[in-house]
Write a protein that binds this DNA or RNA. Structure first.
Lengths: 213, 213
DNA sequence: ACTGCGACTGTACCCACGGTACGGAATCTC
DNA sequence: GAGATTCCGTACCGTGGGTACAGTCGCAGT
């Protein structure tokens, strides 16, 4: 069941346990929400005790912080990989971006039970549960997405003038918006495919804006 | 502070109290999440006792159900009003729809503290907290949005063929997607204007798709 | 004026859960 | 083998959801 990869520099025992806690917690929290996930069941899933949990995390807020950091690294790696492959297949910035978006949509479509959810939404829909540090980190995660998408869009806009005047930052944010909203819609309707479909619709938007007529 | 309008057929005392509970609960839940909102503070805000709360609602699930029903009626009224005004100003279905979207964006922009959040997202990010009935109702709310947007889009598509082949249902869902995602992004970044901006970007998309070149 | 019902109040209690405190014990490292 | 790391066990507190139930208050109908 473990997704723990065999790493060259073997993590210390403590680090391994910590990772196990984070993975169990993430899955449970995305399925049931932060509050509805009890520490009791996290420690059961991670096969430790309550004391063990509080050894690694002072409280649930620190767990949230660690979860956000984990998700930020994973997102960054995933998006980097997707667009790297896009640029590998084409020198044209628009074509590369469109390929990347299609790959992203395919990844989302390949989750049989649908996307499990995003920690960012979990956090900002339970604001008061989290301290300033967590909320700041949450903001940072979103700004990170913006930067990644913006870099792609700027490269595109440099070669292809948009057919309508658009703010590139807002357009970059729209990609995050569609993903976050698409996850909500997929979950609400119980239609896992909706998320990928929405990303492809957004892809068509980009094509319409920049592709030469 | 009360938004209770003076109605002709005065609601019974029980109905008034029930409404007060729902309004207090909605504001608190959107600000802090469902779980983080204690019954204690709801009854304090509504100026009743715990027993009074449980007289009106068997448990928190029933509160959620009532909240969803309230939000469904409010949404329906708001969207109907927005598009009614659009069609009042123009006989052209596309123009009317675009006007409606602009009005919608303006409404969102006029919330000084930003959109407080959407119950639909709250529910589907805390799935396990709610029973089947609540989740079904949540789905119904989203399907309701779909129907409203789809009716507009079908009227548009009948007169103006889209410049790219698109599934109208998916496009209708994209409006909900952008609103839900935009709320999340606004909250996460602490930029209330982002939501309206995203709706206007989506409006441009519709224009690009259907406006004759 | 009496009755019945709707709309609550007050009190007492149970359980789950987050969090604290602290004393160990096993395992690993140097 | 000393010390640090990584846990385990146990006891305890406060908060909050939920149950149970007796009593109160005002109003509508007779």
């Amino acid at each position: 069941m473990g997704t723990v990869a065999v790493l060259p520099k073997a993590a210390s025992r403590g680090e391994q346990t910590r990772r196990r806690i984070l993975e169990v917690a993430r899955d449970a929290i995305l399925a049931k929400g932060f509050d509805a996930t009890s520490i009791e069941e996290i420690v059961a899933g991670a096969e430790i005790t309550r004391s063990g949990f509080f050894y690694h995390f002072r409280d649930k807020n620190e767990l949230a912080r660690a979860l956000l950091e984990m998700s930020m690294h994973e997102d960054r790696a995933l998006l980097a990989e997707v667009f790297r492959r896009g640029h590998e297949l084409s020198d044209d910035p628009l074509h590369a971006f469109l390929v990347g978006l299609r790959l992203l949509a395919e990844m989302m479509a390949d989750m049989p039970n649908g996307h499990p959810g995003c920690i960012v939404t979990t956090v900002c829909y339970q604001e008061r549960l989290f301290d300033r540090e967590v909320r700041a980190l949450n903001r940072q995660v979103v700004l990170n997405w913006r930067a990644i998408f913006l870099a792609e869009l700027e490269a595109v806009a440099e070669r292809y003038p948009p057919s309508e005047p658009v703010d590139l930052v807002a357009l970059a944010d729209m990609l995050s918006t569609v993903v976050e909203g698409g996850i909500v819609m997929s979950k609400a309707l119980g239609e896992p495919r909706l998320l990928a479909e929405q990303i492809l619709l957004q892809r068509t938007y980009v094509k319409l804006l920049f592709a030469p007529r």
